[in-house]
Design a protein around this nucleic acid. Structure first.
Lengths: 117, 117
DNA sequence: ATAATAGTTCAACTATTCTCGAATCATGGA
DNA sequence: TCCATGATTCGAGAATAGTTGAACTATTAT
């Protein structure tokens, strides 16, 4: 992943309204939510909402899908994980110390096991 | 973790110079690096460097430790993982789909195994 | 004490970001 | 076709962020 892409992603998430949109869509899952629903949840004006959706979209963090009059936005989970990987890559490369804590690890494991069932 | 704290963290990472500082410190491990070394690595002016270190520090992503004339900055790995957890928490809560991909999972596993040896 | 080295703070300027009302585009129903 | 609804674009204003030179503080060496 390119540095520029990562910066765009972080910039997109470094804003209250957008972070709330993103978390809402993370919760919503791959099916996503239409713009109207997101606006109802956050209480922002349509113009502002559209602006932020474009930002998130441009950062690759969410994707749009048209369905009739509605446009559904959904989180791009692959992109989220790519951003996380960019941070943790080369972690402690010099002294070989591991910096992923137990809590995170066990969480991922629990999810993996659950998904495998 | 508070939303405001997360926003500060993302804002801190959404900037080329700071992202480079942070990745350099992630690589450097818990021992950290003195300001001069960071400056030599990045080629930024002292004032600019100081400004960005303060930002990262204020976001809780790095910590300072004085040693004689030198000030060593080191990444705060707990904070990094808290930020990541904030993103992935409640992931797909509505439909139960797992969104952590195989690549990330296996990476964490490999590290855990390595650390356990 | 004096000088040198390591970092920080300050002030000023430029550039970017956020927000909102009004206008516009696009889709579906009467 | 005409209208209502869902969403985006545009323009302008206020606020915030990034960079730099110069001055400043703190620690060590001579």
């Amino acid at each position: 992943m390119e540095t520029n892409e990562v910066i765009k992603a972080f910039a997109a998430l470094a804003q209250d309204t957008r972070l709330r949109i993103y978390r809402f869509l993370i919760e919503a899952g791959p099916a996503g939510q239409p713009v109207g629903e997101i606006g109802a949840e956050l209480g922002t004006s349509p113009a502002t909402l559209s602006f932020h959706l474009k930002e998130l979209s441009h950062a690759g963090l969410i994707n749009a899908r048209q369905a009739g009059r509605f446009i559904y936005y959904a989180a791009d989970f692959a992109q989220m994980n790519a951003v996380i990987a960019f941070l943790t890559d080369n972690c402690c490369a010099r002294d070989g110390t591991c910096c992923v804590p137990v809590t995170r690890t066990s969480k991922v494991r629990a999810r993996t096991l659950k998904a495998a069932r």
